[in-house]
Design a protein around this nucleic acid. Structure first.
Lengths: 200, 200
DNA sequence: GGGCTAGTGCAACTCGGGTTGCGTTAGATA
DNA sequence: TATCTAACGCAACCCGAGTTGCACTAGCCC
């Protein structure tokens, strides 16, 4: 898949790419991943569908490109000075990210896309690895403060904290509220304190 | 959606339904949910595609029917006499269920299908609610033995134990091994012991 | 065993996502 | 400003999933 916009970075090419990306996000929000068609994205972007097919190849390509864009965006990592509050803020952020009427539908569509396709799955993997790394300081700071045992794996704590939310949202399809997010954070905290995530 | 085979339970109708169900599972295992087409299932079942369309309506209907069938099947709940071992057996069972070369592809396809479609999502919800209920005795026995505080919510413990596996398998797409399954079980155990899942 | 009907097989059709070949436009270079 | 070419627009096309109308078969009931 040719990464779009490498040969002729200025002018129309760049405008087309931006318009298509915006249209992809808007279509994902409106119709979800299953309702995403190249034709609709092209029409929304004011571009012909053959252009989109040539540069992004398929709907998967559109999603991968949009996810790559999202990976690069900055992301607020909580830093309250206390691990419990940090983890709760983190899980709350995840929950809001998927339930917020504005951002939720597109975020949901990304996860759905990742579950299906190898290319989008790889993009989602990269995206979440980046997020895990960005969130790691929450844990390392806690270790430094003596809240957690030395050697605690930050990634494990973060994954354990957010996993129940994803599970309820996308697998078991149970309702999720703020209390669930807090409980998930508290569970990760308790497990981490008990030394469950201390590596070798 | 008309539940197949209610009016004429015997003979050809029942044979067709069984053949289509088997074919659906086989096709899911071979080509995944995205590669599942009504035509292929019909051909594999030795049945005309219009028959499948009339009785199951769509690929989603096929998956829902197969999931309903799976919900009814018995399922071995570990009972070792110790909570840690029970939870580890549980998470191990989940992991094997998705990574086993025989059963894994179809199980994976079910989760992927549930992420996409409302009908299959509802079927998956029912399926997992049944599984949570079946697994609840693991926790209630531990409470009775005094391993966990009174009032511990069994569903929370089970969800917390299995959620990291689903997260790695279907969301972040990270490799998962037996050690991860054990850690997930241990984390749920530590959180439960700390009283995180005690409900008011 | 002879009607009755739900369920099935069949073939032709619809329809929309995706493809292809070619002419045109717009941005880069000098 | 002249030129060159990557990128785009356009229309026609392909293809296969899903639909429809009708004939037929196999279970059910007397």
């Amino acid at each position: 898949m040719p990464r779009p916009g490498t040969a002729r970075p200025g002018g129309r090419t760049a405008r087309t790419r931006a318009a298509v990306r915006d249209a992809t996000l808007a279509e994902l929000a409106d119709h979800g991943y299953d309702g995403l068609t190249v034709e609709a994205v092209a029409a929304r972007a004011g571009v012909h569908k053959t252009t989109v097919y040539r540069r992004w190849e398929s709907v998967e390509g559109l999603v991968v490109d949009a996810l790559d864009l999202a990976s690069g965006e900055p992301w607020p990592v909580p830093d309250t000075g206390e691990l419990r509050a940090d983890l709760r803020a983190l899980t709350r952020e995840v929950l809001v990210g998927f339930t917020d009427p504005a951002a939720g539908p597109a975020a949901t569509a990304f996860v759905v896309a990742a579950a299906r396709n190898a290319a989008t799955a790889a993009a989602m993997h990269d995206y979440l690895v980046a997020r895990h790394e960005q969130a790691a300081p929450i844990v390392t700071r806690a270790v430094d403060r003596g809240e957690l045992p030395t050697g605690t794996d930050p990634g494990d704590v973060v994954r354990t904290a957010v996993a129940p939310l994803y599970y309820r949202l996308f697998v078991s399809r149970e309702p999720v509220d703020a209390a669930d997010a807090e409980r998930a954070a508290d569970a990760a905290l308790a497990a981490a304190r008990a030394g469950t995530f201390v590596r070798g």
